[in-house]
């Protein structure tokens, strides 16, 4: 089968790959790089469980083909630690009870990280608007919103 050469920077590491032309970024991350934090839950871009950052912006990795992101920087939940410490978002999700079954959690945290990248002090309404792109069936979202608020306060 024909393959495509790509070079991507994943979690601050430059990686050279030969991928299928139709390979999604989600498949590359999960199957080639064993970064299984991003989850496949709909394959339609409708749930947000596969969200990662593409050059700092949250994207649905199930909708992006890896050959499209040649040369780009990707951050996944596994790359969120800073100086060996959990990111304030991760801490806040744990402390505030924003995690139940956890299947949506990586995508939620990465979506929230994208929000904080572009808006350091989001209002509650801005947080709700941002994470409403992602589906969670367990928590009722309340504690997720509180966790993002808490993290943004801590990072201020």
């Amino acid at each position: 089968m024909k393959t495509v050469k790509v070079t991507i920077n994943v979690n601050n590491e430059k990686i050279k790959l030969q991928v299928k032309p139709y390979e999604t970024l989600l498949e590359t991350l999960r199957e080639r790089l064993a970064l299984t934090g991003a989850k496949e839950a709909c394959s339609l871009g409708s749930c947000g469980s596969c969200t990662v950052l593409l050059n700092g912006t949250p994207v649905r990795s199930c909708l992006i083909l890896t050959p499209e992101v040649d040369g780009a920087s990707i951050t996944t939940i596994e790359g969120l630690k800073e100086d060996g410490k959990l990111h304030p978002l991760q801490e806040a999700f744990m402390e505030k009870g924003a995690v139940q079954c956890g299947f949506c959690t990586s995508g939620m945290i990465m979506t929230a990280k994208g929000l904080l990248n572009r808006n350091k002090k989001p209002s509650r309404a801005e947080i709700i608007k941002s994470i409403s792109s992602n589906i969670c069936r367990c928590t009722g979202y309340k504690k997720i919103v509180e966790a993002v608020e808490e993290a943004s306060k801590k990072m201020a």
Binding site: E40, V99, G102, T105
Partner: peptide, 21 residues
């Protein structure tokens, strides 16, 4: 007490392994 879930660290770091994994 309001104790965070003991499996939350696994889930908040993407390390929890589901059947998909």
């Amino acid at each position: 007490k309001k104790i965070p879930k003991i499996d939350a660290p696994l889930k908040a770091t993407g390390a929890a392994l589901y059947i998909q994994d």
